[in-house]
Design a protein around this nucleic acid. Sequence first.
RNA 1: GGGCGCAUAGCUCAGUUGGUUAGAGUGCUGCCCUCACAUGGCAGAGGCCGAAGGUUCGAGUCCUUCUGCGCCCACCA
Length: 919
Amino acid sequence: MPQELPSQYDPKAIEKKWFEFWQSVPLFHAVVTKDKKPFTIVIPPPNVTGILHMGHALNNTIQDILIRVKRMQGYEALWMPGTDHAGIATQNVVERQIAKDGLKRQDLGREKFLERVWDWKNSYGSTIIHQLKKLGATCDWPRERFTMDEGYSEAVKEVFVRLYEKGLIYQGDYIINWCPRCQTALADEEAPRKDLAGKLYYIKYPIKVSPGRQAATPPEKRLKSSIVHRPSSINYIIVATTRPETMLGDTAVAVNPSDKRYKGLIGKTLILPLVEREINIIADRSIDKEFGTGAVKVTPAHDTNDYAMGKEHDLEFINIMHPNAVLNSNAGKYEGMDRFEARKAILEDLKERNLLVKIEEHRHAVGHCYRCHTIVEPYLSKQWFVKMKPLSKPALEAVKNGTIKFTPKRWTKVYLNWMENIRDWCISRQIWWGHRLPVYYCKVCLSGEQNEGNGVIVSRVKPDKCPHCGNTDLEQDPDVLDTWFSSWLWPFATFGWPFGEQKTEDGRQKTEEKKKELKYFYPTSVLVTAPEIIFFWVARMIMAGYEFMGEKPFSNVYIHGTVRDEEGKKMSKSLGNSIDPLKIIEQYGTDALRFSLISTAASGSDIYLSAERFEQGRNFANKIWNASRFIMMNIKDGPIGAEIDINNLKTQDAWILASLNDAIKKVTKSIDSLKFNEALNVAYDFFWHKFCDWYVEIAKFSIDDKNTKECLLYCLKQSLLLLSPFMPFITDEIYSNLPGEKPQALAVGNWPVVKKEFDDKIAIVVMQLVFSTVFSLRNLRAELNILPQTSARVRLSTTTKKKKQFESVLALVKRLANISELEVTTQVGQVKNSLSALVDKDTHLYLLLESLADAEKEKVKIDKQLADLIKQKHSKETMLANKEFIKKAPEAVVERERKRVIELSGSIKRLNEVRDAFA
RNA sequence: GGGCGCAUAGCUCAGUUGGUUAGAGUGCUGCCCUCACAUGGCAGAGGCCGAAGGUUCGAGUCCUUCUGCGCCCACCA
């Protein structure tokens, strides 16, 4: 019952109630509906290991607002939910779990380990989904997908096979980012570089002296060069490296062919220290003469750049490490040492032999595993790749020609730049949790006896036998696919693509329905996501959309900001600076969380958050609560929910209805242009500062009036509707408690629309006059410390026109400002024993007093006002005197300025008369 | 090394295509516990819109340079 509502809004019980209610109604389930337009969003699937953080909260609140608004606007709005299997992350979680029992995944074996992961997923994998529901997300929950559920896995397989058959997937040797801890390859994007304070070591590589010959070139020839290093006089070359341990795998030293210092040395042989292997000096144009000594040790198996050189110069590739970054037998006496141990040992040995020339401090960027932060090892291995160039073409074109738009626009460039320089995508991962490659090997063929067929079979199902030799002993590739290789299919695979073969009639029918759904809901409307996954995910989805559906996956990409703390650092668990959204929900309520997040988040800019920020949301929820409480208390007996009698509106009624129209217009427009903070702030301002601060206060004067009640109720309802996408819990709760309403979710088909009959410009002007008058009087009172309770006697001096307009609101002004006598006159001049204030350009207010305490003070005040007006007038006159301005500025602007000057002249004249009365 | 972004009130930020006297929240000051709300009301103080040039009748808004931050990309070993 309304009158029993507590005076403070307590979100807990109410949120729980609506959370449960929303789960129980089918309102958020979208189906193909011919006469409705579809509006589709696919959720960026959070990791199954995910726990709701502020980034999620922001991302999903935005999506929820969009989907709620569109649903209210009558679209068939579908928000597809689901989770991502998150290969490495999930495997890590379970590995940590079994590590407590002293087990490694290898101890369990692949099958048993995967069972454990599935167990984990089944018990904990829905945590994030539950949390999203708590956030109020109105996803189409029955449609929830998982990137490793059965149907989805079919899509992944299908895509791999299709791309392979098209020649876009290949297996190749390559230097990849290898995480020695996770024991898997990482894509470039998964191995972000961090600047580290490292060291640059200068090491001598002795030049081999052929028996019977002296140094390679006569020293004097090189002395002409002004360069410091003179390798001739000393029989070695100095190389600079940040990773001395890799020297064990050196197979050359490279210099720039144009480098005069080393001119005669190209082609000569060096003795690789410690290993005592002979390597050659080669010339390569990629070498920077300015860096280090201009001579580079080349380790083709352990450096991307060196790998390229190795290929070009046909060098030997010596891998010196095991996959766990422990040196292997190629490392000689260092075998068995970890890479960093080996570095130490090697440096010791070099020092001992006097081969370590110097050590410099050197900052450089080193790749780190994005999951465990281990320094990645550039590692030569056989991996699977996708050729990206052909896929990128339509995806580039779509963004260039505006078929797909980014908001804010600036991300377009970032996207295009990456796409234009796209590199092949390493998609194999040496982990167990994920989609296993649909690749099978025939050992017989691989052994090389057969010429046809290379022993590699790519197939949707495991073949019974090798198509080439008939061998039945086939083995599936142990690797799994990069997680993004499944998520790039998200916008269509979630609908059941590629639909497979159905054996039963029933199955076929279901498939037909699913196909219709895909046709209806795809392409999706807006993708809402964070900037850091533009490359990982957005770009790849666009490519997949065109490749497999022949159509864009979405029309708009909305990139929101990164959530940061007060110091601008990205919020993350490892930094310990994160504000837990669940705690905020606990403390302030979900609506408060949503409100504060969105009102802070200007389109696309990063969000700096502090916990206090959420008080604003809490306060607003409380305001909504109490205003509603007040209205409900006052309308409980009256005839309610009938039509507003439009022919019988008071000025204030007309004003609030016109203002409401304006708010609806602005909120709708802002949401359409994805400016959520703007939309929310308009709704906020309307509700609090127009409706509550003014209208509700005014309504108290005629609270028994039927039309007043109707207006109150109507504006409240419309406000709740406008606010409901942002603050769904409290708005549903209040709306459902309003007279004549049933418990319901404000979900479908009731978005407020502008009503032309409520547009009333005059009411706005008149009410503005009311507000200014009240405002001026309050101001005077505050100055004089006259309490508002004390009733005042006031005279207003204004124009004939305004005097007339004022007639309808005289009583209103009197009550609002507590005025016992109010006289409106067109006369000007100082009124005896009064204080004056400027209400507007041609209205003066006089507060009549028993006596005037300080006439001088009053004169000073008037002089100040006068000076200000004269200054304004002067600046406008200067502007108007400028012929260029008259000539070039739009007529409307010139006209407006002219009008202002006239107004100002009038004000100055009036004010002068007031002032003269003092003299 | 390239690219992008940001500098507006003490703090956190808005400010549409250039056009009245630059806004909000929060904090601060003063007065009010008035029967919806002190998580509230009323009033107030507080801005050379980072610096210097330029374009324009007119610049917080457009251009150039500089300064200070931040982010992304890149194989300087």
